[in-house]
Each structure stands twice: as structure tokens, then as C-alpha cells.
Simulated assay, not measured.
Amino acid sequence: MRALLELVRAPAALSVPGDTMAGAAAAGSPVRAGTALASTLLYWAGMALNDWSDRHQDALDRPERPVPSGRISPATALATAVGCTGAGLLAAFVADGRRGLGLAGLLAGAVWAYDLALKRTAAGPSAMAACRVLDVMLGAGGAARAVPTALAIGAHTYGISVLGRAETKGATGATIRGALAACATAAALVAWTCPGAPLAGYVTTAGRALAGLRADPDPARVRQAVRLSIVALIPLQAAAVAGHGRPAQSVALLAAAPFGGRLSRLVATS
């Protein structure tokens, strides 16, 4: 069971429902539990597909991962990706009918395109960011007013993806500057959309994740920064939710952040 939790990066999934909550808040629509479930299932699908796609390279760079270590077979990883994708599409349809299915279909297509074709190209970070943008729009039911919030979360995700590319070789100055710029863009977008949004928690968490890299950009520190950056998504989402007038939901999201941080020390999130 632990190997399966590692395969789908289970703790990182705590950062996913906040996408749909932020999207719903920005759109002024109710949060649908089924949509949040669909989002989580599609995230798990992407993580499993990632490890199936990377199995040969991981045998060299990340032999501790479930597939190259032999704890999960390649067939099981691929079946998990397919099964979670199908379950996610079904959950979206049940929650929001054809509209939900259509949006979830776009998200699933983006996830599979990233893992199978785009990840190792120059378009990789942008493709990963697009997945999170579509995830927020899934929660918003496609409402245009949610686009700035979706772009903010996408910007932060771009920074995570840029850092993730340095997990095995260490970060360069350009990598660190790119991640910092992505965080600044995310904060600026939320501040512009929701003046007065409580962004201090996000800025502190994201800044702590990146600050140490300037002095020590080795692979171990980069992986730590990626884990902290994933957790930092939660205060960013919470700020957007609060900024759109849903403080109780924002508090609920923030309550999950310490739990996610503890779990990320027990089960790998990157």
C-alpha cells in the first residue's frame, strides 16, 4: 500500500481540492464534492502515468521510486493511470453533467499530453501549468471570471515545474530566479483580482521554500524546495478563496497545510 501511495504522490493530493474551491469561489458558484474528487483522481492518474513514462530514466536517476525499485510493476502503474483517469471523468460527469465531463476531458488530455510527450520539451513547465489552470476552471464550471485565479495557480505551478527539472542535478541561478518570478506573478495576480487577499502566508511559505537554494542549490535541497512549493499552493488557494468572500473555506484549506507538510516527510511528493 505504501508503494501505491508513493506512486500517486498521495500527500500532494491535499493541494488539489483547493483548485476547485478557488475556481468555484472566483466563479461565485458552490463547491461540488464530486468535482473535487474528479480533480484528485486525475491528479493521481498523472502521477502514476509520470512514473510509468519515466521508468527507464528513473532507473538511473531515481531508483528509489516505486517502479524502478520493483515495488510496483510498470503494468500496475499504467493500469492505475488509466483507472484513475476513467474514474475522474465519471466523477466529473456525475457532479456537473456534460459540462463537467467536457472540462475534465480537457484536463485529462492535458495531463496525458504532458506525461507522454511534453514533459521533457521546452514546453514542459507551461504544459504542467496548463493542467492546474484547467483544474481551477473545472471547479469554476468554465466561468471566465475565474481565469485570473486560474492563471495565478498556474504561475505557481510553472515555478514548481521549473524547480522539478533540477531535482537530480541541482538548481542554477536562472532556475531559482525563474521560480521566484513565478511566485511573484502568482501573488500579484491574486492581489489584483482580490485586493486585500491574505497573501502573507503564501509569500512566507513560498519564500522559505526557495530562500535556501541561493546558498545551497544541490539536488537534495531542490527536492525539499519542490515539496515545500507544493505545500505552498494551499495558502495561495486559501488567499484566493478568502479574497472572493469565503473565509470559512479559506480556514479549512489552511488547516490542511500542516497535515500535508507532515505527510510529505513520510511519503515522497516529488
Rank of each mutant, 00 (worst) to 15 (best):
139 G>M: 07
45 A>M: 06
229 S>P: 04
45 A>T: 02
248 A>T: 14
254 L>F: 11
197 A>F: 05
151 L>A: 12
187 A>P: 00
90 L>M: 13
69 S>Q: 13
4 L>M: 13
45 A>S: 14
161 S>G: 14
98 R>H: 10
18 G>D: 04
195 P>H: 10
174 A>K: 09
133 V>Y: 07
67 V>E: 08
14 L>W: 02
126 S>C: 13
92 A>Y: 02
194 C>V: 05
48 A>G: 08
32 R>V: 07
175 T>E: 04
197 A>Y: 06
150 A>F: 03
41 L>A: 00
80 T>Q: 07
100 G>W: 02
8 V>C: 10
25 A>W: 00
52 W>M: 05
197 A>V: 09
201 G>P: 13
254 L>S: 11
206 A>R: 11
252 A>L: 13
44 W>N: 11
38 A>M: 10
114 Y>F: 13
139 G>W: 02
142 G>I: 03
114 Y>I: 03
187 A>I: 05
44 W>G: 13
92 A>I: 08
225 A>S: 12
70 G>C: 13
44 W>Y: 14
176 I>M: 09
51 D>M: 08
226 V>H: 01
68 P>C: 10
238 A>R: 01
93 F>I: 00
95 A>I: 04
149 T>K: 04
119 K>R: 15
235 P>L: 00
152 A>Y: 07
177 R>W: 05
227 R>H: 01
37 L>H: 01
129 A>D: 06
24 A>C: 11
86 G>C: 01
57 Q>F: 11
187 A>W: 06
149 T>C: 10
185 T>M: 14
115 D>I: 00
195 P>G: 06
189 L>K: 04
260 G>E: 12
116 L>F: 12
138 L>G: 06
66 P>D: 06
250 S>E: 11
176 I>V: 14
47 M>A: 15
146 A>V: 13
143 A>Y: 08
117 A>S: 10
82 V>H: 00
35 T>K: 06
229 S>I: 03
57 Q>P: 05
75 A>L: 14
81 A>I: 00
33 A>I: 12
145 R>N: 12
263 L>T: 10
70 G>L: 12
73 S>Y: 10
166 A>H: 06
189 L>A: 08
179 A>W: 04
176 I>P: 00
86 G>A: 02
167 E>P: 06
170 G>W: 04
75 A>W: 09
174 A>I: 03
23 G>P: 02
157 T>S: 12
118 L>W: 14
106 L>W: 07
133 V>C: 07
104 A>C: 08
154 G>Q: 03
237 Q>L: 08
245 G>I: 04
255 A>V: 14
40 T>P: 00
257 A>K: 03
106 L>P: 00
27 A>K: 09
215 A>T: 13
178 G>F: 06
58 D>R: 06
24 A>E: 08
175 T>M: 05
203 V>L: 14
44 W>C: 15
226 V>D: 03
205 T>A: 15
160 I>N: 11
198 P>Q: 13
189 L>F: 09
210 L>K: 07
13 A>E: 01
68 P>I: 06
203 V>E: 15
261 G>M: 03
65 R>Q: 04
154 G>V: 04
161 S>A: 15
247 P>H: 02
248 A>P: 08
